[in-house]
């Protein structure tokens, strides 16, 4: 049997691995560039600032932007205090034990629940049981269940990274526990917490399955949170799937990808910047 020289075979494997990695990154750039080439020419101020006309065949996407903002706002309004509160409890008020295990299991499991199941759940509870129908409120609440685990995890990590000594200093100055948390710990952990929130905004922007069953897909400009609304991602899905208008679909996709790129990159930059500053 012939055996390859180990140095040579390492060279071959290394090249192969780099080719695979390169093509993966290539796929990513291809996706982004393809969407931009097809979609960016469709963008204009009018596209962003007028409402869709004729099911989205013409006009712009203003109503969908507004619906997206509403939904994310509602979701964060509920998920942030719950997530941050959980993180504070886990880090400051309890020791590792059965209770923290249960809470962590719940968080991890919730993170793994697919969006279609969350959509079913939101539909059963908010749309039907509570009788709110398809509405931004139903959608936002369901979305908050999706964001909760991310916010808990990132907040917990950043609170844990605050040096224990800061707490001791505050205590030794006679500052109570809660004030120590709000005035010393949370300000020091803020960058990480904000990064977590920003990343969950990016996730919400691209989400469809959760929203389509809970917020519906009305194209009207939403005037209250009890109305149905269509987000950017849902709008794109409907445009593309029903073949309503390819140029409009590409334009919407470009906005989606652009938003997600900007949000992710800025979150990443802030984190890098702050990590440098602290170390």
């Amino acid at each position: 049997m012939m055996r390859l020289n180990p140095i040579l075979s390492q060279k071959i494997i290394k090249t192969l691995l780099w080719i695979l990695t390169g093509s993966t990154i290539g796929i990513l750039f291809f996706i982004i560039i393809y969407i931009f080439i097809k979609g960016l020419p469709q963008l204009s101020w009018t596209f962003l600032s007028t409402n869709p006309v004729d099911m989205g065949r013409s006009g712009g996407i203003l109503a969908t932007i507004v619906s997206t903002v509403y939904l994310i706002g509602i979701a964060l309004f509920f998920a942030t205090p719950l997530g941050l509160g959980t993180a504070i409890y886990l880090t400051e008020y309890t020791r590792e034990g059965l209770i923290t295990k249960i809470i962590r299991f719940g968080t991890e499991s919730l993170a793994g629940i697919p969006s279609i199941i969350l959509g079913l759940f939101g539909f059963a509870i908010f749309v039907i049981a509570f009788g709110w129908g398809w509405s931004l409120l139903s959608g936002g609440l369901t979305l908050s269940a999706m964001l909760l685990p991310t916010i808990i995890r990132t907040s917990e990590e950043s609170i844990l990274s605050v040096p224990q000594e800061y707490r001791e200093v505050a205590f030794s100055l006679g500052v109570g526990k809660w004030k120590t948390i709000t005035r010393v710990v949370l300000p020091a952990a803020l960058p990480g917490i904000v990064t977590g929130i920003v990343l969950s905004i990016a996730r919400s922007v691209g989400e469809t399955a959760v929203i389509i069953f809970t917020a519906g897909s009305s194209l009207r400009f939403p005037s209250s949170i009890f109305e149905s609304g269509r987000t950017l991602a849902v709008h794109f899905y409907i445009l593309a799937r029903e073949g309503i208008s390819m140029p409009m679909a590409y334009g919407t996709a470009a906005i989606l990808v652009l938003l997600i790129l900007i949000i992710n990159i800025s979150a990443y930059m802030t984190m890098r910047f702050l990590m440098k500053r602290y170390s």
Binding site: P163, E165, Y166, E168, V169, A170, F171, S172, L173, G174, V175, G176, V184
Partner: peptide, 17 residues
């Protein structure tokens, strides 16, 4: 908290906030 206000503490390592 009042006690700690009356009895201050300086640690081994300087810990400015």
């Amino acid at each position: 908290n009042l006690l700690r206000a009356r009895v201050g503490m300086v640690f081994a390592k300087p810990i400015p906030l």
